[in-house]
Amino acid sequence: MLVQQLINGLTLGSVYALIALGYTMVYGIIELINFAHGEIYMLGAYMGIITFGLLTTLHLTFPTSGAALLIMMVMAMLFCGACGITIERLAYRPLRGASRLAPLISALGVSIFLQNFVMLAQGPRDKGFPHLFAGEGIDLFGSRISAIQMFIMATSVLMMAALQLLVHRTKIGKAMRATAQDMQMASLVGIDVDRVISATFLIGSALAGVAGIMVGMYYGLINFFIGYIAGIKAFTAAVLGGIGNIPGAMLGGLLLGLIEALGAGYISSEYKDVFAFAILVLVLIFRPSGLLGKDISRRV
């Protein structure tokens, strides 16, 4: 049972990590707990279903479902990216100089708005996500690991690596890091801060879109409310790993998934979230900035 629970936990953790990556990225730049990030993820999942519906009605059949999946991903990324920058413009940018809590509340408003918009436009009922992923998976020490589980784990690692490269190896990444450190200084040295932040939201939201498709496919079921729990879990994962830190989000996600799986499997499924939070508190007592977060010394 242990191996199976480890597989369960790692997949669940990868799912959390997928969403936490975008969360932590946005946080890293403008220190905003983006409550609406979970909703972007939900929009991505819906965009996947809508694209798939369009493809089938137009009778565009593909030799492999992989092509359909690719198109769905691209559409979801475009759509979520567009939503992300629009939301930033509309709800966060005007609040950039205000107190830290103002954009938090505004993000919450966006989140409530999007949930209800999707409920009204797409209906409140659950929708099945098309099953596009063939492949049987393999047996491992008497436990099963399915193809899609492997695919999800691989995607999350890949996405983390790509993000890490983007932030540390590219010009826009450099601009992002500069903006994160000091927005005013960054704009003084000629960085278009607005543009950098827009780009951050674009990338972070596009990642959420991918997460929406992956998770939708994995569980096969979506509704307008999936962003709520996902958002809280992703936030927890990001903080556990050190919010703002990209490998931290991955580590935090995996850990959270493992804790939940082992807690539910061995102790009690009702209290698993209590264990998860208890461990989070313990970690934060000894490492107040999360596992991989830099210890921000007190500003004097």
């Binding site: 936030f235 903080v239 209590v274 998860a276 939070f277 989070l280 508190v281 934060l284 107040p288 999360g290």
Partner: peptide
């Protein structure tokens, strides 16, 4: 336990505390 925590780390711990009580 949260005396040393600041800002958003404090936020998540208080969130967790609330959820722990409810659960």
């Amino acid at each position: 336990p949260v005396l040393r925590l600041r800002g958003d780390y404090l936020a998540i711990v208080t969130l967790g505390f609330g959820e722990m009580i409810r659960i």
